[in-house]
Each structure stands twice: as structure tokens, then as C-alpha cells.
Design a protein around this nucleic acid. Structure first.
Lengths: 308, 308
DNA sequence: GCGTGGCATTAAGCCCCTCAA
DNA sequence: TTGAGGGGCTTAATGCCACGC
């Protein structure tokens, strides 16, 4: 049972979640489970977004606390607090901060700090910090994959120190009120996340002592990070475009085609579409144009909603 | 100042929100401001999604409360509560409910209940329920748009009754624990939302008395609703496709082209693309194929991120 | 390791009321 | 009406410690 991967979207559908609910689930569940954000920080992030909505309405409604409160079902007193928070931000030129980054900031850069604090010089043993006999060391080293980042294996308490330092750094960029104290619980959470993502590996030397090694130089691999970034940007653009489409903006065109494709024709179809789009863009592109447009497209498996 | 429309995305960008934060803002702010969901219900909805993530991890990790807690930074005891909630849902076959519907359920169908409770028979006056002299009535009626739904104008207290009944109905579909009591504050919120969306109009008869008329048969116009629905579905599909793309799924192809287009060529370009895509789909479509694919595309204004 | 229990703090989402400008 | 108070309830996010298995 352990390690079974559950398709949250399918389970949610089976539980008869509505369309909008599926969208929320898709976003939130991935933030938490795949990207590794803390449960609480996602809740907080959304709460900031919701407060932002309140602040905007407040501005749009002529700074009327009561009316804003009615429109969103929030107490005027609370509206006032919220407005205060945002005016403060604007005043001090501080950035609007929800999650801040796609992956948890206190885990990003974990490898750098490790490499910085515990570098592995030349051909010294990775297990330098542990008192092992030569034969013990050889046995352990044999069980470690090759091509690992050049830094030393460390003890649990040293890893906690690294995490604490990282947490401290990530807090520096936050306004004073938003900072959260470091706690054992948080440290342990981070350790689990690092292990789970494969960034760190634990090697049990004996029942009481483990060595921790850095297994990857990033919380996520570089190219995957880049792809996730692209995904977020595409999604945001798509979101905005679709909002405009809902309002029947004539500058926006939306379309969808579903079709059955034979496996052996798939690659040809993909390639041809790519070429068609490229040619189309070349044909209509004009350097003289002031208006830039973007054409996004995506081919993916089509799952007939009714069939599920 | 009142009624000024603020582009939340631009303001958020100006406040240096990160990419992922912009995405969250786009979603949450629109749920609250444009679709009219209560502040609290959006928070709750996300909280349910987050709890769903916890539940999924719990299942995937072999029903290990503690480990699940560490992975998401939630106390094991809380994990247990959350798991209990979901097992209950599954057990009783109850649907997973976050927002439930794209627009607030207690406002959808407002016009139906009005038409049902206060229908306007034949050629009787819309203001039947108000004691007005013939001339007063004519003056007021002249100020009302033609072609309104055939139902009577009502008093404020009657509108509150309608809202209460509607709230009651929407609660029926919820499990017992999730129900919220009706309150004056909630009623007033609904009233403001109805007025703001233009579903209901207020006509001041005198300083102490207002008549309320139903100005539209829907909280949102039908075709707009349909578009919003399409948007949510497209977004969800796009989301899923992009997630697969991140994992380098070979069945997924993602692309984007940006170009400058002269206004006079825009329509031709749009039409040609439409045709190209159609032809491409026809060419590769095979009835024999078991695998269905979907090609989504969207043209929208391209805003260079760097320029903002 | 894991489940379970106790104990504590703080914020915030809710409700209602009054009074002065 | 709107802003500004006051008062109160309840949930839940977050922390810590400890016991028994």
C-alpha cells in the first residue's frame, strides 16, 4: 500500500466534485503534495489573495468600509484591518507576498548551503565526519551512488542546523509581522520533505546514528523547475486570456478540437501542427505592428467527462 | 472614485508578486470579486482542498498519521480528524464539496424562487403589493425598464425572506456539520450582491420605503454563464495537460508563438488559424483510434512581462 | 519509529448591539 | 448611512511534552 500513487483528480471526480471544485483541487493539492508547500502556508496564501480582493473592492467602492464588508461578507472592522495591512505594504513599497515562490523558499537552495558549510575537499572521504573504520567506510561508500554533489555526509543535528539557517534566510525577506519562529516541528517537516523529494538520503550507520548525504543539487531538478515555471506562466496567461474571452473580447480567440489519433500517426500529427503554427505566425507577423498577440496551444489526452 | 475598475493583476505585478502568487490571485480574486463568492467560503473551499491533499498522502503513505503530519506540517491529531472527515464522506457516498458551483449557490436560482412566490398575473401592476395612487404608480412604472421578468415588486423584508429560503435550500445539499445558520449579516451580504450584479434593482418610493424589482432572470446572463463554465473546463484541462507536460509525457505537446499583428490583418489571421486547425484535425482523425486527444488553443494579447 | 493523550496560545471568521457625525 | 466602539463564541493552526507500544 505504501507508495501507491493516487490520482487526486480521478478520486475527486468519483466523489462528484463540481467543475470549479476540481480546478481548486488541482491547484491546491499540487501545491501541497507535489511542490511541497506547507499545509498552513497554502491556507495563508489564499487568505492573502482573498484579503487582496477585499482591498481592491474597498478602493473601487470609494473607500467605503461598510459597503465593502457587505459585498464580501466581512465585518467592517476586519475590512479596516485588511485595508490597513495593504496600505502599509504599498506605503513601504513592500512586495505582495503569498507563497513567494513555486517551491517552498526555505527548501530552495538547500544544496547550496550544504555545499557551503560542508564542502568535500579533493579526494577526502565523504564520511569524514564520522568515526568509521576503513572497512566500515568502504562498505558504506559502496552503497552510495556515484556522481553525488561534492559535500560531506552529516549528522542529523547538523542537518537541522542547516534547515534552521535556511529558514532564517527565507524569513529575512518577509516583513517583521509575517515571520514565523523556527520550531522542532517545522524542522522535522523540512527533513521529511527533503527525504521524500530525494534531495537528501539517509544512511543508517547503526540503530542510533544515521548519516545524511546530499543526493541531488536541487530540491527539484533544474529542467523540471524550468518546466514548472513555464507551466505557471502559461497557466496565468491562459487564465487571463480566458477571462477576456468570457467578456467576449474580440482580440481573443479560443478553440478546441478533439480527435482520435492512431499511435503510429501521433508524431507526424504533432510535427505537422508545430509547422503549421509556425508558418501561420510567420505569415501574419509584422514588425510594424504595435499590438503583440500570443498563441498558446496544448495537445493532451482527451478524457470524456461523461465516461468517468 | 466610486466604480473605478482596478486591474488586480496589474496592481499585483506592480507590487512585485511572484508568478505563482499571480496565479493564485487571478483565481481567488475572481472567485470573490467577479463571481461573488463569500470571503469565508473561498477560504473554506481551499481548506477542504488542502485537507484533501492530506487525506491523499495519508492513503499513499500506508495510513501513517505521523508521517503524513510531518510531510505537510500538520499535527498527527489533526491529520486523524481530517482523515475521519473524508472516510465519512466516502463511506456515506457524500459528494466532495468545496465551492460547489461557479457562482454562489445561495444566489443561483434567485429569480426562480421570486417568480414562484410573487408571480405577476396577466396585466396586473408590478407594484400591486404597494399602496400607491394611480399617478404615483404610473410615475414609478415609467422609470422601470421594459421587458422585465413577470414578477411583482416586493418589499425589503420580503426579499430577505426569499434570500433566507434560498439559503435554506442550498443548505439542504450539505452534510449536517457543514451547514451555517442564516444571519442578518449574511442576508445583507446577499442583498448587496444581488444589487451589485444587477439582478435586483431598488426603487426608492420614499425615504422609509423601497420597492425591489427583479431586473434579470439570472444572477449572470445565460451565455456568460456558459462561457464561464467553458473557461473553468478549459482551464482544468489545460492544467492537467501542463502537469503532464512537466513530467515530459510524450503524449503531450505544448507550444506558444508570439507575434505582432496589424489590426487590419487580425480577422484574417484568426480565421485562417481556425481553418488550419480544423483541417489538421480532419486529416489526422481516425475513427479506429482508441486514444482521444484534445487540442486547445488560445490567442490573446501578449503582454511582455519585462515591460510592466 | 507510531498512536494517543494532555495543555496552551493566538488569530480570525462569525454573531449581535450602540452611538455619534 | 458610515465609522468607531464594545462584547462574545468557536474553530483551527501551531507549539510543546509525555506515555505505552
Amino acid at each position: 500500500m505504501v507508495g501507491v500513487r493516487i490520482n487526486h483528480h480521478q478520486l475527486a471526480r468519483a466523489m462528484k466534485a463540481s467543475d470549479i471544485d476540481l480546478l481548486l483541487i488541482l491547484l491546491v493539492v499540487n501545491l501541497i503534495k507535489n511542490l511541497g508547500h506547507r499545509y498552513g502556508s497554502v491556507i495563508d496564501a489564499v487568505s492573502v489573495a482573498a484579503k487582496f480582493a477585499v482591498y481592491l473592492t474597498y478602493l473601487e467602492e470609494g473607500k467605503n468600509l461598510r459597503r465593502t464588508g457587505f459585498l464580501h461578507h466581512v465585518e467592517p472592522r476586519r475590512v479596516k484591518e485588511i485595508v490597513g495591512e495593504f496600505e502599509d505594504l504599498v506605503q513601504r513599497g513592500e512586495p505582495l507576498h503569498l507563497l513567494g515562490s513555486i517551491e517552498p523558499s526555505y527548501l530552495i537552495g538547500f544544496s547550496y548551503i550544504w555545499l557551503e558549510k560542508f564542502p568535500m575537499q579533493g579526494d577526502e572521504s565523504r564520511l569524514k565526519l564520522f568515526n568509521l573504520t576503513a572497512s566500515e567506510r568502504l562498505i558504506v561508500e559502496a552503497s552510495i551512488a556515484a556522481n553525488l554533489p561534492k559535500c560531506l555526509a552529516i549528522r542529523e543535528d547538523q542537518m537541522y542546523s542547516l534547515i534552521e539557517e535556511l529558514h532564517g534566510k527565507s524569513q529575512d525577506s518577509l516583513p517583521l509581522e509575517k515571520r514565523t519562529v523556527f520550531s522542532d516541528a517545522l524542522a522535522e517537516h523540512a527533513k521529511f520533505r527533503l527525504l521524500e523529494s530525494g534531495t537528501v538520503q539517509e544512511i543508517k550507520l547503526n540503530p542510533k546514528l544515521s548519516a545524511y548525504i546530499l543526493a541531488k543539487t536541487d530540491y527539484s531538478p533544474r529542467d523540471r523547475q524550468a518546466r514548472i515555471h513555464t507551466m505557471i506562466q502559461d497557466l496565468t496567461r491562459y487564465f487571463e486570456g480566458m477571462y477576456a474571452w468570457v467578456d467576449e473580447d474580440p482580440e481573443v480567440m479560443r478553440g478546441i478540437e478533439t480527435l482520435g489519433v492512431l499511435p503510429e500517426q501521433k508524431d507526424a500529427a504533432f510535427q505537422e501542427l508545430d509547422q503549421l503554427v509556425r508558418d501561420w505566425a510567420d505569415k501574419y507577423h509584422s514588425e510594424a505592428a504595435t499590438q503583440q498577440i500570443a498563441l498558446q496551444f496544448l495537445i493532451s489526452r482527451h478524457v470524456d467527462v461523461l465516461k468517468i
